[in-house]
């Protein structure tokens, strides 16, 4: 698989644009899923996923062929999504960290069942509920949780994708799991 990707990348470097189509075909679902789970919106996810593939294409000559292409591609996609979240962040946001608490958000100040009344939960698809809860996570926990539990990547790879130390990845996964435990325990 990696060998095939490398062959296609070499073709793209030689100017064969159509070889890139095959790369997009192989990774489109993973990248779209990554963007969708982080952003929680299909339309935005499609925009960001397309943008990620275009940026990867434009910068393909800076890709180190000895590394894993998927790691590099996920990194581009994750960064784009994180930027998007930061740009559209409204002034008051329950996910915003309470200053000086490192990771504590307003959600931890609100009882879980007041966010979603019992009957509303029942009327929603379970999938949507879960996605909503993921989207409620602060962006730095959301990206690690999605990379770990939806893309099923190793802690080391997550550390590479997000360009943060392994210890920080672990801390964020712990805190993200804690937040999800809190949010999903009544589902």
């Amino acid at each position: 698989m990696e060998a095939l990707i490398k062959k296609r990348i070499k073709q793209v470097l030689k100017g064969d644009q159509s070889a890139y189509g095959e790369i997009v075909e192989i990774y489109k679902d993973k990248v779209f899923q990554l963007c969708f789970r982080i952003l929680g919106n299909r339309h935005e996810a499609e925009d960001m996923a397309q943008e990620a593939f275009i940026r990867a294409y434009v910068n393909i000559s800076s890709f180190n062929i000895d590394l894993k292409f998927s790691t590099w591609l996920y990194r581009i996609a994750t960064n784009l999504c994180i930027d998007r979240i930061r740009k559209k962040k409204p002034d008051y946001y329950l996910d915003a960290e309470v200053s000086g608490t490192d990771g504590l958000t307003m959600y931890s100040q609100v009882a879980a069942d007041t966010i979603l009344p019992e009957d509303e939960i029942e009327s929603l698809e379970l999938q949507e509920t879960i996605q909503r809860e993921i989207t409620k996570l602060p962006e730095k926990y959301r990206s690690v949780i999605v990379l770990k539990y939806i893309e099923e990547l190793s802690l080391n790879e997550i550390s590479e994708i997000l360009d943060i130390p392994l210890g920080t990845v672990k801390t964020r996964i712990h805190r993200g799991r804690e937040a999800l435990r809190h949010q999903l325990r009544n589902v």
Partner: peptide, 16 residues
């Protein structure tokens, strides 16, 4: 904790 993980993982894999 385990339930939260299972729920997150249960979100079916979507396609582009």
């Amino acid at each position: 904790l385990e339930k939260a993980i299972a729920l997150v993982q249960s979100t079916s894999h979507i396609q582009a």
